[in-house]
């Protein structure tokens, strides 16, 4: 178990370092000289040289990378060229919004997806299964952001149930926070719920027809207990995997959802930084998102071993 833990930690660290190199080289490959941009068009060579020295651009690339990585480790990503604000402050202000949206959406997706999956597996071949399957097929085919736009039109504008845009911090007023974030989270969660529904159903159907379940039933165990203790527990592994695989989609979907509902999150920051060519911010955002992705996947891998002891024994490290 410890060996596996170390292996996974080491693997994640290598991936993270590689990712940071890709980001670093990618930003350096972009056209334009930041020193020239800062000094202005008519600056004399001495000024430009001074700025280059100040930014550390006169040093070799490996030295520059080590400086960049060292600063990044302490959370220092420099200053935004668009706003002049420290990048870590900008990320600090927007990251919580994105994380809250993602967690809220995932909670909705897991709850709705697993319920629909269990219903479809238990009522196999009857109308609840068709309803659940039809819903997930539809949810997978319809573009989320289109549903978001239509939801604003009907649920917000015509019925007035939800606000069309805006955000209130959780610490400020939890009820208002929920009022503003529920519709975006619901929209973001729908397609993920569909994927979870499909996987839960498939895994539950497999488990419920297995021999050990037949034995349990033969012993006289009630069907509720069979479904919960055997079916659901086994399908948890699949659902955990799916959540890990969906993180990328959740981040991408989050950017779009933030844009539709005008939420002040990382997605908005990312788009703004691309359109203003704010390289320090782009660099930091990419690195933070990638790091988050790697860390969450690591946590999920470790979670497996808690859910399913068989994995611990067989040693997934190979």
């Amino acid at each position: 178990m410890l060996r596996y833990l170390f292996h996974r930690l080491w693997q994640s660290a290598v991936t993270l370092v590689l990712a940071s190199i890709v980001v670093f080289v990618g930003v350096r490959a972009l056209p334009g000289d930041p020193a020239l941009a800062m000094a202005g068009e008519n600056a004399d060579p001495a000024t430009i040289k001074a700025i280059r020295a100040q930014l550390g651009l006169d040093q070799s690339l490996p030295v520059q990378y080590l400086r960049f990585a060292g600063h990044a480790l302490t959370g220092d990503f420099g200053k935004s060229t668009a706003t002049g604000m420290p990048v870590n402050q900008m990320i600090g202000a927007t990251l919580p919004v994105t994380i809250q949206l993602a967690l809220y959406a995932m909670a909705i997706a897991v709850l709705a997806g697993m319920t629909a999956g269990v219903v479809a597996a238990v009522f196999r071949g009857r109308w609840p299964e068709w309803a659940a399957n039809g819903f997930s097929l539809l949810a997978l085919s319809v573009p989320t952001f289109w549903v978001g736009i239509l939801a604003i039109l009907y649920l917000s504008v015509q019925l007035g149930w939800f606000p069309a845009s805006g955000y209130v911090a959780l610490s400020e007023n939890p009820l208002r926070w929920m009022y503003y974030l529920t519709l975006p989270a619901l929209i973001l969660g729908i397609s993920h719920a569909a994927v979870i529904q499909r996987q839960t159903r498939a895994s539950m159907v497999g488990t419920l027809t297995a021999d050990f379940v037949r034995t349990a039933r033969a012993k006289g165990l009630g069907s509720g207990a069979v479904i919960l203790r055997y079916g659901l527990r086994n399908s948890l592994i699949v659902v955990t995997t799916v959540i890990g695989l969906q993180l990328g989609g959740l981040i991408a979907g989050g950017v779009v959802t933030e844009r539709i509902f005008s939420l002040p999150g990382m997605g908005k920051l990312t788009l703004d930084s691309v359109f203003t060519r704010d390289y320090p911010v782009i660099q930091a955002v990419v690195l933070v998102v990638t790091a988050a992705y790697i860390v969450i996947n690591l946590l999920i891998d470790l979670l497996y071993t808690a859910i399913d002891p068989r994995i611990r024994v067989s040693g997934r490290a190979q």
């Binding site: 981040i251 691309v274 060519r277 998102v289």
Partner: peptide, 14 residues
């Protein structure tokens, strides 16, 4: 590990 949107953001920046 690179979400496709981040990749697209990087490519669009270039």
């Amino acid at each position: 590990a690179f979400p496709f949107l981040i990749l697209a953001v990087g490519l669009a920046a270039i």
